[in-house]
Nucleic acid binder design. Sequence first.
DNA 1: GCCAGAGAAGAAAGCGCTTGCTATCGCTTG
DNA 2: CAAGCGATAGCAAGCGCTTTCTTCTCTGGC
Lengths: 358, 358
Amino acid sequence: MAVTLADVAARAGVSSATVSRVLNGNYPVAGSTRDRVQRAVEDLDYVVNGQARGLAAATSDLVGVLVNDVADPFFGLIASAVQAEISDASAPGGGKLAVVCNTGGSPEAELTYLTLLERQRAAGVVITGGAVEGAEHSAAVAARLARLAESGTRIVLCGRPPLEQPATQIPVATVAFDNRGGARRLTEHLLSLGHRRIGYVAGPADRTTTRHRLEGHRAALADHGLPATGPAVDRLTVHGSYDRSSGYDAALELLRREPTLTAVIAANDTVALGVCAALRDQGLSIPDDVSVAGFDDLPFSVDTAPALTTVRIPLQEAGARAGRLVMGRQTAPPGGLATIRTELMVRASTAPPRAGSA
Amino acid sequence: MAVTLADVAARAGVSSATVSRVLNGNYPVAGSTRDRVQRAVEDLDYVVNGQARGLAAATSDLVGVLVNDVADPFFGLIASAVQAEISDASAPGGGKLAVVCNTGGSPEAELTYLTLLERQRAAGVVITGGAVEGAEHSAAVAARLARLAESGTRIVLCGRPPLEQPATQIPVATVAFDNRGGARRLTEHLLSLGHRRIGYVAGPADRTTTRHRLEGHRAALADHGLPATGPAVDRLTVHGSYDRSSGYDAALELLRREPTLTAVIAANDTVALGVCAALRDQGLSIPDDVSVAGFDDLPFSVDTAPALTTVRIPLQEAGARAGRLVMGRQTAPPGGLATIRTELMVRASTAPPRAGSA
DNA sequence: GCCAGAGAAGAAAGCGCTTGCTATCGCTTG
DNA sequence: CAAGCGATAGCAAGCGCTTTCTTCTCTGGC
């Protein structure tokens, strides 16, 4: 059987209450006693029982991190930063463990995990990635979050828009990305290069992230006096999931619909990779025949050939901030919303369209 | 205050023992009673307290996953697969939570996390990535693992060599990668293309993975009657960390030492990316001037230009297997060691050396 | 020289759940 | 008809820790 507090107490010749106090350092204990207890702890290789402690003190060492997929560097980077922040034992309340939950973007999985985390009485929850749009789901999530918040779990949204109005009673801090602004600047970049027929490979249709990026794109089009709605622009928009093959397929589809397009914007860098592969397979050269741009600026984007023009989101920074917020180590800005700026990274995959094709 | 078992019991008009039994389904309960209890649970939105349950039943819903860095797709992919496997609620014992711990490759962090996991009485621990070589550290890890194993925590090593002899008493399942064989086949590939001056950018010097890959490489050299030890081959070997910039620097260093080299093997795909960038910056073309090969076959490797020749490790598969093992859903092979084969993926980044340079 | 009070340690009551054991009830058996 | 038994449900003892309330022991002040 494992060594218990009582064992340590017996060996040190004190009561278990005293051992507990030495361990937690939240109550005066005479120096000599403390030393004796500490020696006993070491001799016995004692490790506290986190469950028992949690039960008695109504605390927890767990912080949940909900992501669509840890294998995707986008989420991996955020998760990594959150993890680094909360596990830092030298910081107040530090030494927490990150429970990474892959939701796969499924609303049901999201709810299931929130329940599991509630069950563990998690100290905090960081929810990353765009939300699925839909009143029922939003309400269900809000309800769960309300329960969690009420039981003292700190909640942070990272890269997801804040909760909607009725739910705003819930104390939730949000670290949002400026997807709209980023997309807008990206499209402006292409427009200013002279592109007019720009394909857009969007993400899954029901995601907030997808919508925001698309809105930014269309806002830029409108600014330039181009049609931003209607069949003409719908024709140049294809939805898909956030993976490479989806980008590949979408590029072929766009090419079928509009063989003369001169640029393609992808939902994210991974999708852009697929787009590039498809274009190359069609004998088109990037950026001479078609410019391609991504989103996120994942680490590999600088190493593709040509290097990918994209919109940088400081994921690391955002994750670290979310981590600090969930630890209560930093207070949320007024309104609870911090928007992280995005930055256009112009690289070699975009260039002016061929003279003849404008 | 949160709803407790007693609240549910009161509402259903039964004792809390009965509620517990309904919830766990491990004891006969009359149908009518069960229904009544279930209704009460729903009415009250009851969620069990995992800590209390864990304490009373001496169980846990947590499985630790130690990785060097979740942000690295290599680990992200493994973690993702493990997570998927253990959280599957439909499988026996399923619905566990993955606690992802970033060790950053530091032995101390590794030990710290193992203690934290012991504290939580984790149901299992999956340790991924190569181990740091060194008797003291190995012993310390073995000691911790012994304690964990003794307290019923299932332990699985994934992509890490099995524990050494004295420690083999500890019941540990290992899912190892055939790094040696993979490296050997990769080098053979280059040799058979006609390369003779092959640079090798190795990983951190004290890692088992680094050593095994290097051994495979040198075994292939020896097979072809080339020197496999000594200053000549040491000159063509540079150590670095597992990141892109390290590959970049190493490539420059190799070029300085041996300007006429015709091929470079990198510690992994990420490093290979850096190598490619450095070569390109030096005005060298891949594979015409220099062939480059990586290791791991991460998803992006197929999208670099030229596509990277590399050694595929089925990380997903390995992670899933580790997940099943740690859940006790699959029994370890005799000897506790399963070796995952690696596969040479020949792509466009390797080609015969230029006629003149052989 | 005595009492108040600070300081340190202990006793014990939970925290919310599981589970071995006991109690009850309605039947089947000999 | 009594004993026996299977099927349910409840009692209560923990699981290992925290924390409130007490107790005990010195000091210092007058």
